[in-house]
Design a protein around this nucleic acid. Structure first.
Lengths: 247, 247
DNA sequence: ATGCATTTGTTCGTATGTATG
DNA sequence: GCATACATACGAACAAATGCA
């Protein structure tokens, strides 16, 4: 039951701080594969006993490991070896399934909502409509190898794209639905990134702790003629997803 | 004293929820400028009286407005019309002072740290050095009209740029110091964005609440020949700053 | 639904070593 | 030597989130 003590005791008279020695020990175990990706680390109390130090000292080491992205700490649950993060490359032509497949993972999705509604301030401004104009709202959870990586709300002008609701209902895919509505191709015009803590059931849907922020990306997509066809607001769990921009 | 009641009573039998009607009413007033940016909204109790609904219904509407960034709610103080956020446009050639001035604000800065140190894993990987190589670390707080908008750590290889420490000490500016070291121009090679809650004294320095996330941008900057000259890690307060990509 | 045990998060206080001037 | 500041380390208690019976 007790994990094997592979590292020797800490040296207290060598000029190297105790917490740095703990960082090195854990880094070594992760690198060696003793601790697999996603595996649960010992609790802080167990670490403290194993290294014969105070829990504060263990916490100082875990803080360093967490800051460097090697370890993920979750209140009430424990600490875990961090998974590789999924880079979301912002490109003119980014499609969800292509993004996921480019990382050698299997894309899947779940439609959460599909209906016609009235445009609120943000949506109206982005789509160039007046407040309250009719828009189709399509909400979808995107997964990579079964793990949630995006929660996105897509908005389309009913007037600009009649029949988009039916097309989305049939295909469940934005790209396919736009193609069915006479928009064979679309490009990202701008991406605005911000972050906030999850609200409502967002944390639950994305399978993330409630005290970790979401990356929120607002995308405006245009057709080849440059006219706006979609406003998408996608939320991604950190640090599972990062947004990368390379010109 | 009592704010004018510009909107009619809510309709209770139209299939539109009461809280959505309140959202629309407040959005309209903000858009019309009846409520100025930064202005304090009526209290939840006042809203409840004005619309003749329960305070819970008002809260549901405020939650939606807050989520969409139009309103900022502060516990114990009230709700306010959200200030315009400062867009940080990611461009090949972005300089702090130019960014701030392009928004008609006055840039300033405060040097927090300047010293030579050993490269940790992240820095070494970004600069293409081995672990523990000598690097100069330059930490700076950036302000726009006196309000903090960035906390950035800049890293330079001592070997690649001898004299950069002295130049930074003299000028206090990355651009000027690089110019003094024979790098008259530099370009952004890649930007990686993530988010996390503030740690240590970050919240205090950036004058933001501790429960609001930071946007963290990692930039790799290269000279005109394409060789890496700087790794910068900048932290920005949300929602005061947003990051915008426009190709 | 409710309480309980487990685990991390936060804040006190105390003591010690080290670098600085 | 001395005073000061700072990082390190330990101890205790409580708060907050989670999971489970």
């Amino acid at each position: 039951m007790t994990p094997p003590d592979r590292t020797g005791p800490l040296s207290r008279d060598q000029g190297v701080t105790l917490w740095r020695q703990i960082v090195r020990a854990v880094e070594t175990e992760i690198a060696a594969g003793v601790l697999a990706v996603g595996a649960k680390l010992p609790t802080e109390a167990q670490f403290a006993a194993r290294f014969a130090v105070n829990r504060h000292t263990v916490r100082r080491a875990l803080e360093e490991l967490s800051r460097n992205g090697l370890v993920r700490v979750e209140q009430g649950r424990g600490s875990f070896v961090a998974e590789e993060s999924l880079d979301y490359e912002v490109m003119p032509r980014t499609r969800f399934s292509e993004w996921i497949r480019s990382h050698n993972k299997e894309p899947s999705g779940r439609v959460l909502e599909l209906r016609e509604t009235a445009a609120d301030g943000i949506v109206a401004a982005a789509l160039g409509l007046r407040l309250g104009a009719r828009v189709v709202r399509f909400e979808r959870l995107g997964l990579a190898d079964g793990l949630p990586v995006s929660l996105s709300s897509h908005h389309f002008s009913t007037q600009r794209l009649p029949g988009v609701l039916a097309a989305l209902d049939e295909t469940g895919s934005v790209t396919a639905a736009l193609a069915a509505c006479g928009v064979p191709d679309y490009l990202r015009q701008s991406t605005r990134v911000t972050a906030r803590l999850p609200q409502g059931n967002e944390a639950e849907l994305l399978q993330m702790p409630r005290n970790r922020p979401l990356l929120v990306a607002e995308n405006v997509n245009v057709d080849r003629a440059g006219s706006v066809v979609e406003f998408a607001l996608s939320r991604h769990p950190t640090p599972r997803v990062q947004i990368v921009f390379e010109p």
